[in-house]
Amino acid sequence: MTELRAAARGPVWKPLLVATLAAFAVITIGGLLTDIGPWYRGLTKPSWQPPNWVFGPAWTMIFALAVVSAVSVWRATTDRAQHAWIIGLFAVNAGFNLLWSALFFALKRPDWALAEVGFLWLAIALPMVVFWRLSKTASLCLLPYLLWVSFAAFLNFTIVRLNPPFG
């Protein structure tokens, strides 16, 4: 019976390819928006901030788990309306993820990024709640992302506090 349901869902490679390409697109655009240049290096940062080299591997793991989440929840559903919701939730999340990078790094407005990070946090928590009944794996794979953004929000808050007004 499980094999019949799995066959009805179709091959795994299609959603895996789409999710991986989407993740690479967000990683690439986010990377282009993230300039760790003189402005960022000149900010006062807390002593507990991880070294810059930690962020790349952390985001790589987070996006790999997001791909697993997307594929898991996609394969747990066959309804077009549910598939539209899945795509929509990940698209909204990608938008808020990129907006945070644009605000913090490209526009050099950590204060605006701090206001936006709550929306990013919700754009991670909401799919976790929605996906829970469809695929616990999909939901749990987003937990490191939620924890990382929670940490990043506190780091963002601290950077805003430690530095003069922006703009």
Rank of each mutant, 00 (worst) to 15 (best):
V18I: 15
W85K: 07
L16F: 14
K108M: 14
L126S: 03
G56R: 11
F151W: 08
L155Q: 00
W132T: 04
E3G: 12
F151Q: 04
T28M: 10
G31W: 11
L143T: 08
F154S: 01
L16H: 12
A22Y: 03
P15A: 13
R5S: 07
S47L: 10
P46K: 02
T77A: 12
G31Q: 10
P11G: 15
F154M: 06
A123W: 01
W132R: 14
I62Y: 04
W112I: 13
L162Y: 00
L43I: 08
I87Q: 02
L140W: 09
L32C: 02
W121F: 14
A8C: 11
W39A: 02
S47F: 12
N163R: 06
P110L: 01
A91F: 08
L43W: 07
L43N: 03
S135D: 07
A91M: 11
N93M: 09
Y145H: 10
L140D: 00
L4H: 09
F104Y: 09
L126H: 01
P144T: 05
A84W: 08
I86N: 07
W121C: 04
L122D: 00
N97H: 09
W74F: 12
T137R: 12
L147G: 06
K14C: 08
L89R: 01
V160F: 03
A66F: 04
F96K: 03
D35A: 13
A152Q: 04
S101K: 10
S135T: 03
L4K: 10
A7Q: 15
T20I: 09
A113L: 07
F104K: 01
V149W: 08
I159L: 00
N93P: 10
L114R: 02
I36V: 15
L147A: 15
A64R: 06
P110I: 03
A25H: 07
P51S: 12
N156P: 04
A76I: 09
S69D: 03
L89V: 04
G42C: 13
S139G: 08
W13V: 14
W100K: 03
T2H: 14
T78M: 08
L134R: 09
T44A: 14
A113I: 05
I124R: 04
N156W: 01
V26F: 06
V54R: 08
I29R: 02
A23C: 08
P38S: 14
R161M: 03
L122K: 04
G31E: 07
P57G: 15
V67R: 06
W53R: 09
V160M: 06
T60K: 11
L103N: 10
S139P: 06
K45L: 04
R41E: 14
V73G: 02
A81Q: 13
A94G: 13
G56Y: 12
F105H: 02
H83Y: 11
S72Y: 12
P110H: 00
R75A: 00
W148M: 07
D35F: 05
F166N: 11
A153F: 07
A23H: 10
L140C: 01
L134T: 00
S72Q: 11
R80Q: 14
R80P: 15
A70G: 15
L98P: 10
V160I: 05
V92E: 01
R80D: 14
W13L: 13
G167R: 06
L162G: 01
R80G: 13
P46S: 08
W112M: 15
Q49V: 01
V26C: 08
E116C: 08
W74E: 09
W59H: 11
F24D: 00
